[in-house]
């Protein structure tokens, strides 16, 4: 059983890696930001855009938008009238999570104003920033925690890793409908 915060964090990274995610961190805000920019750049090497929510407290605190712009990347924001068609061809969606679980290895994303559901769905890659303080040891803990953290968002999406299926003779095959690549960047807060 994982007990200390550090053990929970390590277990979380281990579980996400087991789910075929690339993991980065835990790092301080600077290291985290650097990792986000590096991953975003890697996923948009072909000149595609980075889809980025508006008003996400974690991403705003880190200063992700200015950093991506400073890195010369193209941003696609939800207030853009061409958001949806743009998202279909974007290279990566960057989001934060509102909870994560060490034991099962998954992250929870909440939809909201400026935080569209499709950011983490349509682009082929997803970079998700997770605060270490939001990692729960077990799934039941996370469910209780979210319930007591306030009203549930209209859409709460749990993601384990790249999209997958077992429908072809029961062997796991990746990249069905959702992102084919999921990067987890852990922020030590």
């Amino acid at each position: 059983m994982v007990t200390t915060a550090d053990e929970v964090t390590q277990a979380f990274l281990f579980s996400m890696a087991a789910n075929q995610c690339a993991t980065f961190g835990p790092g301080d805000p600077d290291a985290t930001l650097a990792a986000i920019v590096e991953r975003a750049r890697a996923h948009t090497a072909d000149g595609t855009a980075v889809a980025l929510p508006i008003g996400d407290p974690t991403l705003d605190d880190l200063g992700v938008a200015p950093a991506l712009l400073a890195a010369g990347l193209t941003l696609l924001r939800p207030d853009d009238p061409e958001w949806f068609p743009g998202l279909v061809v974007a290279g990566v969606g960057v989001t934060s999570s509102i909870a994560a679980v060490a034991a099962t290895g998954n992250v929870a994303l909440g939809a909201g104003v400026g935080l569209p559901r499709a950011t983490s769905l349509l682009p082929p890659a997803h970079v998700c920033v997770v605060r270490a303080s939001q990692v729960y040891a077990t799934f039941p803990d996370a469910i209780s925690g979210l319930l007591h953290a306030g009203p549930l968002p209209s859409a709460l999406t749990w993601i384990g890793g790249p999209s997958r299926t077992g429908d072809l003779e029961m062997r796991t095959t990746f990249g069905v409908h959702g992102p084919k690549v999921v990067d987890i960047v852990l922020l030590q807060d």
């Binding site: 579980s15 099962t104 998954n106 939809a111 993601i159 890793g161």
Partner: peptide
């Protein structure tokens, strides 16, 4: 169902899209 610890996606839908949201 599968022996996995958790499924890859869980969608938890609480009501339709809310005011100001652009999808859902």
């Amino acid at each position: 169902a599968t022996g996995a610890k958790m499924s890859n996606y869980l969608s938890m839908v609480t009501g339709p899209r809310r005011e100001g949201e652009i999808d859902g």
